[in-house]
């Protein structure tokens, strides 16, 4: 296993519990970490990239203990933080060179070559002499992944990478990640966007309120949701009642009433018919229904 997390809990100084008894085994390849905002994803990510020390638990990254062997962990780690927008006044190439140099690439000619290759790879070569702060949002994010990959890390941690990107940039970014994952790199992709997981991850975990709700493949998650999604047509009055009782995930106006999709363990009535689930339904099922049981 690439990353092994055992009994991980974390409490903030104010006593608030961020993570509770997390146990995860993360293999090579692209691993998705799905969960709503505030689920504890970022805390987990920050612990994994050695920015925070967990309160309890054991984490091994490629065989290195994250508490006692941080330097080794950091050497094999790449990290793209969530809000990677604010740059100091570096040019694109300088920024990447700095990151490369700090990762141990001390030979300047080799470093320069690697930086140029990476810039080509992420499509920023033409923009190499521009100040990073003047790049577009997508370009910044690509520069972010470039700095995370420049030293060819064994583990890449990417926190909410596609938030705020337009569809074209999002696809481009996913492809970059897929390309990286094909090189025997463990990529942990933390996101609340279900599409990111479905399109690129073979393994995933779902987190809510600091706990793992699901661990498996996206297909496994869908399977657990089968028979829990319902479609029904209702009047305005009925809609109000349904909305109070069930997790409504889709509402389409239909004549004088509504065509609804509802996630529920049992049929909500009103001639509801079972409906094949997608990951989004699964996400709602796990966060809204299973987690509250």
């Amino acid at each position: 296993m690439s990353i092994s997390i055992k009994g991980l809990s974390h409490y903030y100084p104010n006593g608030k519990r961020a993570l509770t008894d997390i146990n995860l085994e993360i293999p090579s390849g692209m691993f998705g970490l799905l969960g709503p905002n505030g689920a504890g994803k970022s805390t987990l990510m920050r612990i994994l990239v050695t920015l925070m020390e967990p309160t309890e638990g054991q984490i091994d990254v490629c065989g290195y203990d994250i508490r006692t062997q941080r330097k080794e962990v950091r050497r094999i780690l790449g990290y793209l933080p969530q809000d990677f927008r604010f740059f100091a006044k570096y040019k694109v190439r300088e920024f990447l060179e700095y990151a490369a140099a700090l990762s141990g690439m001390t030979n300047s000619s080799q470093r320069g070559k690697a930086v140029d290759e990476m810039l080509e790879q992420v499509g920023l070569y033409e923009a190499r002499d521009r100040y990073a702060q003047n790049l577009s949002g997508g370009m910044k994010r690509r520069l972010g992944i470039a700095q995370a990959l420049i030293h060819k890390p064994q583990v890449l941690v990417v926190d909410e990478p596609t938030t705020g990107l337009d569809p074209e940039e999002r696809i481009r970014f996913r492809n970059l990640l897929s390309e990286a994952s094909s090189k025997d790199t463990t990529i942990i992709l933390s996101t609340h966007i279900v599409g990111d997981i479905s399109s690129s991850c073979t393994e995933m975990a779902m987190l809510n309120q600091g706990q793992v709700l699901f661990r498996g493949s996206p297909a496994g998650m869908l399977k657990e949701t089968e028979g829990k999604v319902w479609r029904l047509k209702v009047t305005n009055e009925q809609y109000a009642e349904i909305n109070q009782k069930y997790a409504v995930i889709s509402t389409i106006p239909h004549g004088l009433g509504w065509d609804l999709q509802v996630v529920s363990k049992e049929s909500p009535g009103y001639d509801a018919v079972s409906y094949p689930p997608n990951l989004e339904h699964a996400y709602v099922y796990f966060t809204e229904i299973r987690d509250k049981e």
């Binding site: 920015l51 950091r74 793209l80 933080p81 809000d83 700090l102 990762s103």
Partner: peptide, 18 residues
Amino acid sequence: KRDKQLDTSEVFYTRPLS
């Protein structure tokens, strides 16, 4: 101050330097 507020610094913090 810059270190505190900007995420770009964090990518340097995760490098192996002390």
